[in-house]
Design a protein around this nucleic acid. Structure first.
Lengths: 290, 290
DNA sequence: CCGTTTCTGAAATGAATTTTAGAAGCGGCC
DNA sequence: GGCCGCTTCTAAAATTCATTTCAGAAACGG
């Protein structure tokens, strides 16, 4: 199945897409814009006229023509013919597709390995979620009467921020805490049983986040913990815990699976709050317009 | 989504194919030959030129033209445009299918669906990466002589921050810009050809991020863009682009695939810089201990 | 800083395609 | 059998499209 692709410009590839990807650095800057537009909704962008594709990419028609010429094709008609043939073949045999073209290069293999690891993490993480836990957390976050506070460590603070940015759209009373400054005491001092602290903590667990969580718990707040499978010490005081797989071929851990969990949670909460969330989003749209 | 097909010639149908089938007896005998050829390998037969379709059906070009006119279309170009749109919708649909809540058997099924969508996004995103582009970006980011600046929109700013937090560990001269405040001018004013701006921008594209990128590019900085498949306007001025799939069953887009890309990039850069990065990490460890 | 090379878009060209117009073929009906 | 309407093709017209040319602009190297 691998080598049966057509050969263009001395390079063997099984689709124009992969050919474009492999040779991306052979194109001039403007031609590259065409590449990206084509790849971003492949192959349909190429089925329009050359002028339309050019307009879509913000370049002139001759640039598009030079682009197809550099691919080794005789002209735009042949370019479209190949796209149609590929599409036809793909629709008949939808299963077959993987990166056979550049499998020789190590970088592509590394990317594939990384992708595989990430997908495995997502699978195991989502499969292992206790649905009742997930639902309980969603219910907490969807309760507008409960103030939400989010905090994260060095690498997970961005995830906390991501959650905050979304929650703030669908409900009020969502704050971001900064574990690394001394100011978080001001926030925690006001917490009580109604408050919810969402803490993110993965290796290496940060003492400042742990302390913050402990203090919040001591004041009666409900602590929700996102952590890795090694489990942050916060599990001991957390009311709800979601753990994620973090292993990838890298010197750092991966938070992709954790982000997937977060987004799933956001989706769930947004769904719960949809009647009011919809109004809020529309109001925000208007504000942006002004 | 079901009954909103377009109406042509007084008949409502969700595809030209079904429209043709229903109205088959309204056509003249020769036109019917065109119908059959079109339906026999729909819709590809219609994507060729009118003359080719005519030859395939053994009729003359005007017959094909009358055929499309009888369908209520303004001409052959519109006919092809509709076929392309149908095909596009059909190929996109299975990936980003919105599940009506009632069909889901429960929260667990919703989680599974979300996980499946996310994994699909990661797969398509990583498969579609131009390796040379990825490598070029990694090389840029791994050059300690090039100052790095990161900026993101409302939802992508956390991702930019995530990148910054990691890059700062393995190399110096990494700054986070805030597109939403007016202070970024101070940063941009100092940029030159050596600087690298990493911009994150997904729907809805933010004018402040776009402007910042444009100004940076005008000063000669290399712009690296992370965007969705709809492509932010920044593609026009970006030197390197990585696009990610974002569709999930949610009211918000997913940035999981984008995060996977970012992490892969971080892994690559860290690997490149490992001799110095290792020393930096050890030094940081000591600092934390003290 | 300047000459050289490469790249890019505007305009002009030429080809291809869609579209229109007119004539020939075909069948049915008086 | 001849007239009429419908259908279909041939041929020419008009339009759109792809392509080439060329000049200006930008990047590059010295």
């Amino acid at each position: 199945m691998s080598g049966d692709g057509s050969e263009i410009a001395g390079v063997t590839a099984d689709s124009l897409a992969s050919l474009v990807r492999v040779q991306l650095d052979k194109f001039t800057p403007t031609e590259r814009r065409v590449c990206h537009v084509l790849l971003s909704n492949y192959p349909f962008a190429g089925l329009e006229t050359a002028a339309e594709l050019a307009a879509r990419a913000g370049v002139s028609a001759p640039t598009v023509l030079r682009f197809v010429a550099r691919l080794g094709l005789s002209g735009y008609p042949e370019f479209q013919k190949r796209l149609r043939e590929e599409l036809e073949a793909r629709l008949i045999a939808p299963a077959a597709k993987h990166r056979p073209a550049d499998e020789a290069t190590g970088a592509a293999a590394a990317l594939d390995a990384f992708a595989a690891a990430v997908k495995g993490n997502v699978t195991r993480t989502m499969d292992d979620v206790a649905v009742s836990e997930f639902e309980a957390i969603a219910t907490l976050l969807a309760d507008p009467k409960r103030p939400i506070h989010c905090v994260g460590g060095r690498f997970t603070e961005p995830l906390a921020l991501y959650l905050v940015r979304h929650l703030r759209i669908v409900r009020p009373d969502v704050t971001m805490l900064d574990a690394m400054t001394a100011t978080w005491g001001d926030h925690v001092i006001n917490m009580d049983k109604r408050d919810v602290l969402v803490a993110f903590d993965i290796r290496r667990y940060q003492t400042d986040v742990i302390q913050l969580a402990e203090n919040a718990a001591a004041r009666g707040a409900s602590v929700v913990l996102f952590t890795d499978t090694w489990l942050s010490p916060i599990v001991r005081i957390a009311r709800h815990v979601l753990s994620s797989q973090v292993g990838v071929p890298s010197n750092f851990d991966s938070t992709v699976a954790m982000l997937a969990l977060i987004e799933a949670l956001i989706a769930r909460v947004t769904d719960d709050l949809w009647p009011t969330a919809k109004l809020r989003m529309e109001a925000l749209e208007k504000l942006r317009g002004a």
